[in-house]
């Protein structure tokens, strides 16, 4: 039997499944070797987690990201949020790279880094995008809340380093949403006005007029809420 193209052949090479986890579902559970010992996602219950992957140790863009994430760690800690890195490199590679970053850039990496050599965690979170790289993890970032719910995902390609200010802004926005039952508009930052959810009934729409919101129309109202972290604390 002849085949017109390799893709017609009944026997296909194994493809890495890249299934995205779902927002607002429980984040996939895992237990993995890290530079801080064996850790499970469950160990972080009661704490928010920013789980992020990088393509490979000892590469320039990843190094700039790790330096930036190291500076971010205390900022996130003020928000009850811990960083957790991941790549498919070995624990020894991670340790050597973390030491090199300390020696060459003067930056201590304070967060654990998962050595996901068998890609178990990467597969659970859809971190490998085979059309970009069949082996390396992309620059993925997941925000998991203190109840273990996956709240946000960011995917960047191998070539583009992430903006860590956006990570803080995202965590601030999610925690503000939880605390005050509001939404945050485009380019929102702490201290800016937030969006009050639109009313769902005629009565609620009418009642809203007396609640003191800053309304453009009945379905578009803004208000101010106190910041969880003060401006002084944000400046560090």
């Amino acid at each position: 039997m002849e085949y017109n193209s390799p893709s017609d052949h009944p026997i296909q090479p194994a493809r890495i499944q890249s299934i995205l986890p779902r927002l607002n579902a429980l984040a996939p559970a895992f237990e993995a070797e890290t530079t801080h010992g064996r850790l499970a996602l469950e160990d972080y219950r009661g704490t928010w987690v920013v789980l992020f992957s990088h393509p490979a140790d000892f590469t320039p863009v990843c190094t700039t990201e790790f330096v930036a994430f190291a500076k971010l760690a205390p900022v996130l800690k003020q928000r009850n949020t811990e960083l957790l890195g991941l790549s498919i490199d070995s624990i020894y590679s991670h340790l050597a790279w973390v030491n090199a970053i300390r020696d060459k850039f003067g930056v201590e990496i304070p967060f654990p880094v998962i050595a996901d050599g068998n890609r178990e965690v990467a597969s659970l979170y859809g971190m490998i995008n085979p059309d970009e790289s069949s082996t390396e993890t992309s620059r993925c970032l997941f925000v998991i809340d203190d109840k273990g719910i996956l709240r946000a995902m960011i995917y960047y390609p191998l070539t583009t380093g992430r903006n860590t200010d956006e990570v803080v802004r995202l965590v601030d926005a999610l925690q503000t949403t939880d605390r005050h039952k509001v939404a945050t508009p485009a380019n929102w930052n702490p201290g800016d006005k937030v969006i009050v959810p639109p009313p769902r009934t005629v009565e609620d729409a009418e009642a809203r007029k007396s609640l003191g919101y800053d309304c453009v129309d009945w379905w578009y109202c803004e208000t101010t809420v106190p910041n969880a972290v003060s401006a002084a604390e944000r400046k560090g």
Binding site: H36, R38, L39, D43, Y44, T47
Partner: peptide, 12 residues
């Protein structure tokens, strides 16, 4: 010791 590391140590 951070709580998540204590929990991991207790498990192990």
């Amino acid at each position: 010791v951070p709580l998540h590391r204590v929990r991991a140590t207790v498990r192990e």
